[in-house]
């Protein structure tokens, strides 16, 4: 579980996120949604420690996040897996080396044990015949699978995904979303996903936090978001014709 209390972050004279408090639950896919520029990525980077917050507190399983405590930070980092928007795979390494990278950096296992662990996660994310390929030789969907495999290879307690299905076709996007949700439940990890994709919201939104101009204005799940009367959320959710039709058909039924 990750808990944030009143965190704020500004850059020069721009307040990017203001007094956000939220709880991201364990074993659930927690989604941060909002329009581009609403502060989703900044919030995630604050949680990851890539940005220092101006004020507020962050707790990882009741332990206060303290950037100045180097040994705690170092241990915490090993418990975090991250899937970046562009996958962020290391170009100079093969798929297998990319997945083995966290093991090589932080594990004391033998090379053969590391390979067998990497093969285990490769199987879990359903990557076939690509161990010796370089990132430039595989498709976008496969890159996401490699990124997920790399993120979970050390059995993290927390998984962060920044727009994990951006740039993917709708079918592959749903497969990747489902994969993340399955892994979250299977490994009982706290997963936080940044997205503005309504399909993801509907498919895997166990818990949703909605940001507007750096402020949290709504919290709920994927069923509640369809039925809320909040105008800002409705503007966001029903901006697409498909969802407008969904709402219309729901009204007709009721």
């Amino acid at each position: 579980m990750i808990k944030v209390n009143n965190i704020s972050k500004s850059f020069v004279n721009t307040q990017v996120i203001s007094n956000i408090s939220a709880t991201f639950e364990k074993g659930k896919t927690n989604l941060i949604i909002g329009q581009s520029g609403s502060g989703k990525t900044v919030l995630m980077k604050c949680l990851l420690g890539l940005y220092d917050v101006d004020n507020g507190e962050i707790f990882f399983d009741e332990k206060k996040y303290d950037k100045d405590n180097i040994s705690n930070m170092s241990n915490l980092r090993k418990q975090i897996g991250m899937v970046f928007q562009g996958s962020a795979l290391f170009d100079s390494m093969t798929v297998l080396d990319n997945i083995m990278f966290p093991l090589r950096m932080f594990s004391s296992k033998s090379e053969s044990d590391m390979i067998s662990r990497a093969k285990e996660v490769i199987k879990r994310v359903d990557l076939k015949d690509s161990d010796d390929k370089y990132p430039s030789e595989i498709s976008g969907g496969m890159k996401k699978r490699v990124a997920i495999a790399r993120a979970i290879v050390l059995n993290p307690k927390y998984l962060f995904c920044d727009e994990p299905n951006s740039g993917l076709d709708p079918k592959t996007a749903i497969i990747i979303d489902k994969l993340i949700q399955e892994i979250t439940v299977e490994y009982n990890i706290t997963t936080i996903i940044n997205t503005h994709d309504m399909n993801s919201v509907m498919e895997i939104g166990d818990k949703i936090i909605f940001l507007v101009e750096g402020k949290k204005i709504w919290e709920g799940n994927n069923q509640e978001i369809l039925n809320t009367d909040d105008k800002l959320i409705n503007d966001f959710v029903y901006s697409s014709e498909i969802f407008k039709k969904v709402k219309l058909s729901q009204k007709k039924k009721s």
Binding site: L50, L76, K78, F84, L89, F90, D91
Partner: peptide
């Protein structure tokens, strides 16, 4: 620079490297 642009450096930092 390419590693920076493609978030590979961020990936290293998130891992604690």
């Amino acid at each position: 620079g390419t590693m920076r642009v493609t978030e590979q450096i961020d990936a290293l930092e998130v891992m604690g490297v």
